[in-house]
Amino acid sequence: MTAKKKPENDLAGPFGFKPYKVKKGEEYMNEAQEEHFRAILKAWKQELMEEVDRTVHHMKDDAANFPDPNDRATQESEFSLELRTRDRERKLIKKIDETLNLIDSHDYGYCVACGVEIGIRRLEARPTASLCIDCKTLDEIREKQMS
């Protein structure tokens, strides 16, 4: 018995959202598309905010003054890693907010470097993308050359 492969359109995207189905002749970044990405970004932000709350509760509940220096060091190392992760997520939340502002001003979905459409599929893969794939590739090449 062979399993039927799901069509690409039925696969769930980020946070369980179905990929946006572009209708023939549909204008790029119309109201429906903006709402689709607004919902994805808000769900992503909500998930990150919940993770922040879990971290705060975890650190409060698990904080202990271990007499053994090794146990204390392990706990401090774990907390440090969690805090670094939350700091990255804090920056991501800021970027999500900036992206939501772009949607509100109807500037979302266009490359900030060259102005071309970023593309629905790229935005679904990375909703906070601000560069088209070509500009992002050039950016990464420049970054490699500088380091």
Rank of each mutant, 00 (worst) to 15 (best):
P19F: 01
R126V: 13
E47S: 02
K42N: 01
R54L: 11
K60N: 10
K45W: 03
E8I: 13
D68G: 10
N65C: 05
M49Y: 02
C111P: 01
K95D: 12
E98G: 08
E124I: 08
T99W: 09
A3Q: 14
M1C: 09
G115V: 05
K45Y: 02
A63M: 15
A12K: 15
G16Q: 06
Q33T: 04
L48G: 03
A64R: 15
C111V: 11
R54E: 14
E50M: 12
G115L: 14
A64P: 06
A64V: 12
L81Y: 04
R38K: 13
A32H: 07
K4D: 09
E78Q: 09
L102K: 13
A113G: 07
C114L: 13
G16Y: 06
E82A: 03
F15Y: 14
K21E: 15
K42P: 00
R90C: 01
V22P: 04
E124Y: 04
T128F: 07
G119L: 13
A129R: 02
R72D: 09
K91V: 05
T74I: 06
F66D: 06
K95M: 10
E50A: 11
D61K: 12
V116W: 05
K136F: 04
I103T: 14
A63W: 15
L83N: 00
P7M: 14
H58I: 07
R54G: 02
G25S: 11
I103S: 09
D71I: 02
I120R: 11
L138V: 04
A3C: 10
F79C: 00
W44S: 00
V112N: 09
K91W: 07
V112I: 14
T137C: 08
